[in-house]
Design a binder for these strands. Structure first.
Length: 821
DNA sequence: TCCTCCCGCCAAGCA
DNA sequence: TGCTTGGCGGGAGGA
């Protein structure tokens, strides 16, 4: 045995690649007839490095040595076996990890550039690859199939593929996302999660029927391989094993990430969905295991592509392997896509022409007759929500709805919803970007007089909210958003550390998502900010690195100019800190210099009052005198009412259309949980008249996922038990691991600091509190300030410019942990 | 013990 | 008919 002349650590991979049969760290045996291109000389090492960088050189070298290599390897192997004892030989073999598909895929990918120039097509010869990487052909197929599913390669002929690199990736992901939405993967995931909570996985026939019904829609639209225009699919077995192929599985797997929020998919759920789509073949364990195996194969390749990353989701039932999407965010429309592309350094700009888009959609929906992009499902949902909301407002008096424990159990989807509520906002973003016709339709469904149809000029003006930002922003300056219809502007005070997202505002659309604006950053870098919308929304598990994100509400504003809204802010600043404006321990330094008013919020335009005329509201607002019946609609009263937690009892939420901002609840501090309303909650202090505040509240809570659809929160809930908030401190931040814990108290505040027409709603996690009596965990989720009397909650200062309502949302304790390996 | 996934059999499909 | 492609599941390494 000869010692290599030089063997540097950095060349280890290359060496392994070249000679996988030799243990990389041991002295490789050397045949007596050493060829001139001995890999163990510095020169040959250099050659190998060059070769690794240049496929052409490598191929040439490879061809030259091809004839010798096989016999060499065999000889080497024999040589090793001869020189080493059985155990030693076994040890000398590369470990399982070194032979993993992921590593192999890394090697494979290293051979080709991410973005090959279109003029220079890279061809992949499977024989060469298998020889070069010293792997079985079979393994290469695994890799190639997944790459093919992403259109990173395409099959040219037998044994021959073309390397496209990542050029097609954005388009592919966009296409996959759309198909995923079409196939209602979100619902499927939710159905599966629901069943998980209800029963253990049990492949009985009854269950299969249930599954069958839940997957009915996807069966009808049995999906084949999603192609892109110009990237044809020429699989060898196009007709036969097409539907079970790794390609299709891979695409579906990716779709699951693209449609779900947060973009974490457990293998179990993915496998069940894939099984479900396979014509509901027996959900026996062997099939399930097989799917899981294949998903691991796919996941390994996707991980090598850095599209996903392995994590673990810990729930009550244990720790589950899952994967988290780490690839580029896919935004639904061209505009967003372009923004995304420009702000994603790893991707080249997407130049997607309309025609290619049409082609793409045709390719994506070949089996369906009508695949026009008519109305987005989220938009329909919104319309329904609004309709329901209005109906609720106009009909039955609000009475508490008790949710039984069984209901609690039957709402397994809900726990994830709160973690996903940023995605709801995102979803609305998508809806917002739909056509003007849709907007008008939506407007028509709402109060027409309150919501004037947007004119194009206004639209365009309003689509640039950032452009009207004050020229200079301190960390606490408001972001002014114009509102031409009302002649007033919206001002949003945000903390730069926790506000990252900005999107357009269109007044005709009643439920505009208006994510937080980074006051310091929005002017300079819109696209980046926009890009962050999705990446941060999708990752609700974030937290350790963003300790201040949700805590900015605890800070106070610092005003600069004397706009009306800012006067309000100033006023509030002068007020003593109440229980809702707390200082967070970890945030003390930043508090010294930067003060922020709202962490985020629901922008509630009071002009959209559905009951009573605007004038009426306005008058009453100014008068500061609100009848009980109108309390909910009417005026904000000046000043933040300082209220200790012990006094928090009631809340009144104006029954106006709520424009959700991006509510930046601390990802650590909340997690999805069913919310149990308290049957004891009474509304005796309110009149029996329909109380729109409950509708708005319900709408808002449903909308952000704090309560499931259909569940009603009483109009004027009164705190009867103190929620347990001791869990607030139990946020663990271990490196690489983020816990999302429930058992939190989320306090919320309604402000109207902007003007009489607008409300802001903000949520923030409560600061750690002393442990309180635990008996009411499941009975209370809601407590509000101001005492049992509704008016007292709304009354405060009477200068008619500001009012605050505060309350607390209790998230029952439950743990959902996502940890990264 | 369970997770992870390598490995290779073998059948379908293609040239 | 031989070769390519790839579904599939046993079973072993690793945590």
């Amino acid at each position: 045995l000869k010692t290599p002349l030089k063997q540097v650590a950095t060349s280890q991979l290359v060496l392994t690649e070249r000679q996988p049969d030799c243990q990389p760290l041991t002295t490789p045996p050397k045949p007596k007839e050493t060829p001139p291109a001995d890999p163990w000389t510095p020169t040959s090492n250099l050659k190998m490095l060059i070769s690794a960088a240049s496929p052409e050189i490598r191929s040439r070298e490879q061809r030259r040595q091809l004839s010798d290599s096989s016999s060499e390897v065999l000889q080497t192997k024999h040589c090793l076996q001869e020189h080493l004892l059985g155990d030693e030989y076994e040890k000398s073999q590369p470990s399982r990890k070194e032979k993993s598909l992921g590593l192999l895929c890394h090697k494979f990918l290293a051979r080709y550039p991410d973005y090959p120039s279109p003029s220079q097509k890279s061809y992949i010869c499977l024989d060469e690859v298998t020889e070069e990487l010293h792997v079985e052909r079979r393994r290469i197929y695994d890799i190639v199939n997944v790459l093919e599913s992403l259109h990173m390669v395409s099959r040219l002929a037998r044994n021959r593929y073309v390397w496209h690199g990542r050029h097609n990736l954005p388009q592919t992901l966009l296409a996959l996302k759309k198909v995923g939405e079409e196939n209602k993967y979100i619902q499927q995931i939710q159905t599966i999660k629901k069943r998980e909570y209800e029963h253990e996985f049990d492949p009985d026939s009854e269950r299969n029927e249930e599954v069958a019904s839940s997957f009915g829609s996807s069966e009808q639209s049995e999906m084949s391989f999603v192609e892109l225009p110009g990237v044809e699919f020429r699989a060898a077995s196009v007709n036969g094993r097409k539907y079970k192929s790794l390609r299709v599985m891979s695409q579906k797997f990716v779709m699951l990430f693209l449609v779900s929020t947060p973009q974490i998919v457990s293998l179990e759920v993915a496998a069940k969905i894939l099984i479900g789509e396979d014509q509901l073949e027996d959900l026996d364990k062997s099939k399930f295991k097989t799917k899981i195996r294949r998903l691991y194969d796919i996941a390994n390749v996707l991980s090598s592509l850095k599209l996903i990353k392995k994590v673990h989701v810990t729930e009550e039932r244990g720790r589950k392997p899952a994967f988290k999407w780490t690839g580029p965010e896919v935004l639904p429309n061209t505009q967003d896509t372009k923004l995304e592309a420009t702000s994603t350094t790893c991707s080249p700009p997407i130049s997607e022409s309309i025609s290619s888009k049409e082609q793409c959609s045709k390719a994506l929906f070949p089996s369906k007759g009508k695949q026009n992009f008519t109305r987005h499902s989220s938009l329909i949902k919104l319309v329904k929500s609004i309709e329901n909301d209005r109906r609720k407002i106009q009909s039955a008096p609000t009475s508490p709805v008790k949710i039984s424990a069984s209901t609690y159990q039957s709402l397994p989807v809900f726990p994830n919803t709160i973690a996903q509520f940023p995605a709801i906002t995102k979803h609305q973003l998508e809806g917002q970007s739909k056509t003007a016709e849709e907007m008008q339709m939506k407007c028509a469904l709402t109060s027409p007089e309150a919501v004037p149809k947007p004119e194009p000029s206004q639209q365009s003006a309003l689509s640039q909210p950032l452009g009207v930002c004050p020229a200079s922003h301190s960390s606490v300056s408001p972001v002014i958003l114009p509102h031409p219809q009302s002649g007033v502007s919206y001002a949003i005070y945000l903390h730069p550390s926790q506000a990252h997202t900005v999107t357009t505002y269109s007044p005709g659309f009643m439920l505009q998502p208006l994510p937080c604006a980074n006051v310091t950053g929005i002017k300079s870098n819109n696209s980046q900010v926009l890009n962050k919308i999705t990446t941060e929304e999708g990752d609700t598990q974030r937290g350790p690195d963003e300790p201040t994100k949700s805590l900015a509400a605890e800070e106070r504003p610092e005003t600069k100019s004397e706009t009306s809204s800012q006067r309000c802010l100033k006023r509030s600043q002068a007020l003593p800190e109440n229980n809702l404006i707390k200082r967070h321990k970890s945030d003390e330094e930043s508090l010294d210099t930067s003060l922020t008013f709202f962490p985020s919020g629901y922008l509630i335009p009071l002009t959209h009052c559905t009951h009573g005329s605007k004038a009426e509201c306005s008058t009453k607002e100014k008068a500061g005198v609100c009848s009980l019946q109108h309390t909910a609609y009417s005026s904000p009263i000046t000043g933040v009412i300082p209220m200790p937690a012990s006094e928090l009892k009631t809340v009144n939420i104006p029954a106006f259309h709520i424009t959700p901002l991006n509510i930046m609840l601390s990802p650590n501090s909340i997690a999805a949980a069913p919310v149990l309303s308290n049957s004891c909650l009474n509304s005796s202090s309110t009149s029996s008249a329909p109380n729109p505040s409950s509708s708005a509240l319900n709408f808002m809570l449903q909308h952000i996922g704090l309560i499931p659809a259909g569940v009603q929160v009483p109009a004027n809930p009164v705190l009867q038990h103190v929620p347990v908030s001791s869990q607030s401190e139990n946020i663990s931040h271990s490196s690489g691991s983020t816990n999302v814990q429930e058992g939190k108290v989320i306090e919320f505040t309604f402000y109207s600091p902007i003007n009489e027409n607008n409300f802001l709603f903000s949520l923030q996690p409560s600061a750690p509190k002393e442990p309180q009596e635990p008996q009411a965990i499941t009975e209370n989720f809601f407590r509000t300030p101001g005492g049992p009397n509704t008016e007292s909650a709304l009354s405060g200062n009477s200068d008619g410019t500001q009012r605050t309502s505060q309350g607390t949302l209790y998230i029952p304790q439950r743990k959902l942990e996502v940890s990264e390996d």
